[in-house]
């Protein structure tokens, strides 16, 4: 199966210091990759370089018909809009999403009671769930998730895991970063440790 995204010898330098160094990775459909490491090990920078937000210093990135979605520490939601408005007025959608379709996704994430609640009135964990809803609606085939488990309660973790499982069955690849190894039931998560900008 051809890879969705491939990086070769990817490096990023800031102030004469390597943030990431010679990182090579290949992401194929239906795979879940977890890059874990301590704070400052270069996890977020790696995701930002792969997603195209940050320019690489060296190396190659090749994408093959891939629609990437990046969910970072900042959620990209508008705090003065409701959950439904945030999803319905998503600017990057090619298609117009029906209100029913959005409601179904909100229901699936067990937040239908909060449908008309402003995002600023939601907890951090609930906002993360809204980000996941948007990820589902966008239909991208490569998800880059930066510390998706942080601030989630056990219910949120279960929802995230089942979302990832469902996505993988739909040919989506997931590349995420965390502070520790991740195991998801029924899924083969490839865990790589990142230390000082290098995969160990």
């Amino acid at each position: 199966m051809s890879s969705l995204l491939e990086s070769k010898n990817l490096s990023l330098m800031r102030n004469d210091r390597y943030i990431i160094r010679d990182l090579s990775i290949e992401i194929s459909p239906k795979t879940v990759v977890n890059i874990f490491g301590n704070n400052g090990s270069g996890k977020t920078s790696f995701l930002k370089v792969l997603s195209g937000i940050t320019e690489k210093t060296n190396g190659e990135i090749s994408r093959n018909n891939v629609d990437v979605i990046y969910v970072g520490h900042k959620n990209g939601l508008k705090s003065n809009l409701t959950i439904h408005e945030n999803l319905a007025l998503d600017n990057l959608q090619d298609r117009v999403i029906s209100s029913d379709e959005i409601d179904n996704v909100i229901r699936k994430y067990q937040m239908i009671d909060y449908r008309n609640t402003l995002v600023k009135n939601l907890s951090h964990g609930q906002q993360k769930r809204v980000c996941l809803m948007r990820t589902i609606i966008i239909n991208s085939n490569l998800w880059l998730l930066d510390e998706p488990y942080s601030a989630l309660d056990s219910k949120g973790i279960d929802i995230l895991n089942s979302t990832i499982k469902e996505a993988v069955t739909n040919d989506v690849a997931v590349l995420m970063t965390n502070h520790k190894k991740i195991e998801i039931e029924e899924l083969n998560v490839k865990n790589f440790k990142l230390e000082d900008g290098k995969i160990q």
Binding site: K48, S51, G52, I53, D67, V68, I69, Y70, G72, H73, K74, N75, G76, L77, K78, S79, N91, L92, D94, L144
Partner: peptide, 19 residues
């Protein structure tokens, strides 16, 4: 910039000058 919308935009191939 502060709420991460720009990060979200720049990862998409659909983000163009029209935005």
């Amino acid at each position: 910039y502060e709420d991460g919308t720009l990060d979200y935009f720049f990862t998409s191939d659909n983000f163009h000058e029209s935005f």
